[in-house]
Design a binder for these strands. Structure first.
Lengths: 213, 213
DNA sequence: GAATTATGATTTAGGATTCAATAATTGTAT
DNA sequence: ATACAATTATTGAATCCTAAATCATAATTC
């Protein structure tokens, strides 16, 4: 915190990256606030304070609070998307390996932690009243669901399954989402490893004898 | 709305039930607001307007906005609790029937609809910042989880299972929670029947050949 | 020296809470 | 029953507070 502007500790050196750095910093502070204070008590003053900047500067970079919140959600959403998509790309072309990669990626520490999940829930809670939020959330979710369904269909076609693809996809995705919720409102001791293991046990039940990677 | 006090259209006749009626009415208006406007734009003025009462009257019945929100969450939570507990009581003593009842109850229209789910998410989004919310949410959730686990253990002991009880309970509960989320941010066409069917298909996969009720 | 980045005080709006005044209901004494 | 007091509901305006947005000003980078 309290990062003076004059110091040369920015990402790059030129102004464009300096501005990017500030925006990132403010988005981070916004997530901190939403997590710690809830969206109803997240104010520009508190965001500014947490970022160690002035209130006016926040408006300078984002024009309005509304825009800052939009960008924060977009940041979260992009991070989520690129997380599973890069995991998918790294997994090769085997549907089985891809599905495993997708499951594991869903619980990556970078995206699956109390702080980020708390922010997701805050936005979801507001989504009915703000179509823009809904659109952003809906888009990322649909891409993920579609991919998951395609993989379940491919695996079923190749190896068979105890559950038809549509239901398998629904149950796997549902379980992932439900476990995410556990991190936020479940018992404090709940760990990522436990979650991943549980989903893979479901996986093994749906697709028996397909050794997972 | 705009229900004049003088009319005799209250639940009972005496003041106690009149007061109860008003509180319920205001809690309802609060849920409407949270659903339609989000918790960050839910104000006493708007709640009062929606209920057809004056702003001062809201404070008279609930002392403060904070207390009103508390009571709203408690109302939701109680409704949720009594919903699954009465379904359980109606299902008899057979663990299998009880588990089926629990699953179906989770998607009862009274508690599983976009409006109520939206309000749940709003509170969950604020839960990190308000220990009181967390306690209320946590309590209801724990009772449900515990019961679910106990049932899975009983069924496993009696009939066997493809998934160990702890994981089975986690996956069933996870799937229920995840499907709830679908109603809020998933595709608009998602229906309760589809959700129930999906969970029962998972059920059949975990507990094969146990014809469901 | 011009454009950009930053500040903090000021303005403006809106929202929670308080309050005085009034109406309705209930309780009590006659 | 009837009048009268006490309690409970209800209102709308006043108050106090907080928060977003604006702006004049300054610092910095190029």
């Amino acid at each position: 915190m309290a990062t003076p502007v004059t110091e040369k500790n920015f990402a790059g050196r030129n102004r464009k990256s300096q501005s990017e750095f500030r925006k990132r910093q403010l988005i981070d502070a916004t997530m901190d606030c939403i997590d710690k204070l809830g969206i109803s008590q997240t104010t520009l003053a508190r965001i500014a304070e947490r970022a160690g900047l002035s209130q006016g500067n926040v408006v300078f970079h984002f024009q309005s609070k509304e825009a800052l919140l939009d960008q924060t959600l977009r940041y979260l959403s992009d991070e989520y998307l690129s997380n599973w998509q890069s995991a998918l790309a790294a997994a090769g072309s085997n549907p089985l390996a891809q599905l495993c990669a997708l499951i594991e990626a869903s619980f990556a520490p970078q995206i699956c932690n109390r702080r980020k999940i708390s922010v997701w829930f805050a936005f979801w809670g507001e989504s009915r009243s703000r179509p823009r939020y809904m659109r952003v959330c809906g888009a990322h979710d649909k891409a993920f669901s579609d991919k998951l369904l395609a993989l379940c269909e491919a695996i079923e076609a190749q190896h068979g399954a105890r559950l038809q693809a549509a239901t398998a996809a629904l149950s796997i995705e549902g379980m992932i989402d439900g476990l995410w919720q556990n991190f936020l409102i479940g018992p404090p001791g709940f760990k990522r490893d436990r979650a991943i293991r549980a989903v893979f046990e479901l996986f093994d039940t749906i697709y028996p004898n397909l050794r997972r990677c």
